[in-house]
Design a binder for these strands. Structure first.
Lengths: 334, 334
DNA sequence: AATTTGTTTGCAACCGGTTGCAAAATTTTC
DNA sequence: GAAAATTTTGCAACCGGTTGCAAACAAATT
């Protein structure tokens, strides 16, 4: 069925090696041979088989992307950028949907079977051990959106969640909020923990009163909406820092349903800056993660690791910024 | 580095074939041999290489998913379901991001190089010829969300867009709207054309006046918002049928910004039923595509095609339904 | 023209599995 | 217990490429 090296070689009247070489960049072939081969290949519609090549070279040009948050619009950007960045480099993404599964064992085996050249673990909820499991299996791995820790033994690309938490506290202080609340993402997520830490620490330091601390069960609108009920119990809360835009939008709607207006009665600060944050109905002030930079850098790094596996673990942190829209009152003039 | 068949065979004291057979379901191995092999394999941490297996069997267990609409939240479901359905069957998704590229040539070559077992083209905007290009190259293909046409020569799984367009007209009529507008998705998309046809035909038949017909440039909130301006020019319009929820939400916000209230001054009917349609701020009445069924059926079908390539082209259409929320006035009692 | 140097080419082994076939081992039948 | 039937096993070829090596060729040097 498929046309192979051999067919092309016979038609062109050369050896199989010659054909292989014309399709390998930097190999030694004379102009005349190359021409003959290319002509033959074209006339037969020859396509080299990457599978066979992979077997011989032990490079598959496959990069695994493992994610566990397929329902969050923030991941639309991730998928989009990840696939197009890989495509530029003639690599292919192999998607793994974790959904639930949190033990790395099976996933590592699975990606090893496919002999992926590298893996990007794109999730902010899993512990570092998930990524190191790949490393232990000899698979180059990057933990994108992962928890950054000084003594890293794995590559991490992302943001400093502790710092971002603090940024939220500062944002509230600048706008003279005094009594605030934290409505985090799922409590088990490392990113939630770090943001909470950063937020609570700086809040106390700045003299803010954190009247409520609660967590949504999921990164969803519904969970945010429900979790907000608890915050609404305390009438003193002037502003809420949410662990995720989606959760935040749910929370905003819960507040509105309770008759509060935003930002007059209660302010909201989100996280991620998903597309919907800019919609009129929410006009959400939020902390933006530079997803584009993070993904581009991750892909670059994973490619670098494939070429040079000995590379020592690197942490790449990108700055976040507050995108000012309409869900908080303006900065106090002083 | 990696441990191979040979290593396991030597340790277990059997031939390579024996090892291969214990890892192939339905192959003939005695219990004693199997046991020895499994023990040896475990102790070495052996994982069969799918690449090598693919070369020998010419099955890669890779299914290509080609999409071009990575920014639409509707695709979150698609990615989620697609990956998890494949995973259940021990298959892997290979993602291709079309973004812009509309000529099938390159994409077909690319997926042929990876020898994917099958391809799902998941887009409602491309012509059937895109899918048939795969077919011509001998790759089992399904056009999911594709244009259905009676004399199909390619498998199609999706909805009847003409019928859905008509459903929109009927929905308006039932609620006694008289002057309506169509705000479609990109005009070049086959789905847009079909929905428009169905809508306009039944609208005239039912005596509805379609005062405006216009199209958004993209499946985005922004495009919807802009395109809505043209509709607003005509003050008689009582309700708008939008080609996509995202577009619709942009349009709703444009209407509100112009001081109209929904559904009192103007009604909206969306398409797709993305998660955000259920958010309080929009509470969008919309036509739901059963994405879950469509994807599950597509995966099933592509698997079937891999097993039986001779299968004749099939069209699988799923019914859509109106999800009644708050963006249209209630059905007139009669 | 002979020698040296540098390129191109084909051979053959290899990557890590699968599988048809025939021999060997086991089980069933009489 | 021998013959027949069945199951298990190893051999060796194959899947479609790559690549080290040495032979063949071409160009440069003396």
């Amino acid at each position: 069925m498929a046309v192979t090296l051999k067919d092309v070689a016979e038609l062109a009247g050369v050896s199989r090696s010659a054909v292989s070489r014309t399709f390998t960049v930097g190999a030694s072939v004379s102009a005349r041979t190359r021409e003959k081969v290319e002509k033959a290949a074209k006339s037969l519609g020859y396509q080299p088989s990457l599978i066979a090549r992979s077997l011989a070279t032990s490079r598959t040009k496959l990069i695994g992307l493992v994610a566990n948050n397929f329902q969050n619009p923030a991941f639309l950007d991730v998928f989009d950028l990840f696939t197009s960045e890989l495509q530029k480099r003639e690599l292919r993404p192999l998607l793994v949907n974790l959904s639930g599964e949190t033990s790395p064992k099976k996933i590592v085996d699975l990606l090893r079977q496919y002999s992926v050249d590298g893996v990007i673990v794109a999730t902010s909820t899993l512990p570092t051990s998930f990524a190191t499991a790949f490393q232990a299996a000899g698979v180059p791995v990057i933990h994108t959106f992962g928890k950054f820790q000084a003594n890293a033994n794995v590559h991490v690309v992302g943001i400093d969640n502790i710092h971002c938490g603090a940024m939220a506290a500062r944002t509230f202080a600048e706008r003279s909020y005094q009594t605030v609340a934290l409505l985090g993402g799922p409590e088990s997520a490392t990113s939630t923990q770090d943001r909470a830490t950063g937020f609570l620490n700086l809040a106390t330091e700045l003299g803010l009163k954190v009247a409520k601390v609660c967590y949504a069960d999921n990164y969803t609108y519904q969970s945010g909406r429900e979790a907000m009920r608890e915050v609404l119990d305390d009438a003193r809360v002037e502003a809420v820092f949410c662990g995720d835009d989606l959760i935040c939008m749910g929370a905003m709607d819960a507040a509105r349903a309770a008759g509060k207006s935003i930002p007059e009665d209660i302010g909201f600060l989100g996280f991620n800056d998903i597309a919907m944050a800019g919609w009129d109905a929410y006009s959400l002030t939020t902390i933006r993660q530079p997803i584009r930079d993070i993904i581009m850098s991750s892909v670059e790094l994973v490619v670098g690791m494939v070429e040079n596996p000995g590379r020592s673990p690197e942490i790449r942190l990108f700055p976040c910024s507050v995108v000012d829209r309409g869900s908080l009152r303006p900065i106090a003039k002083s």
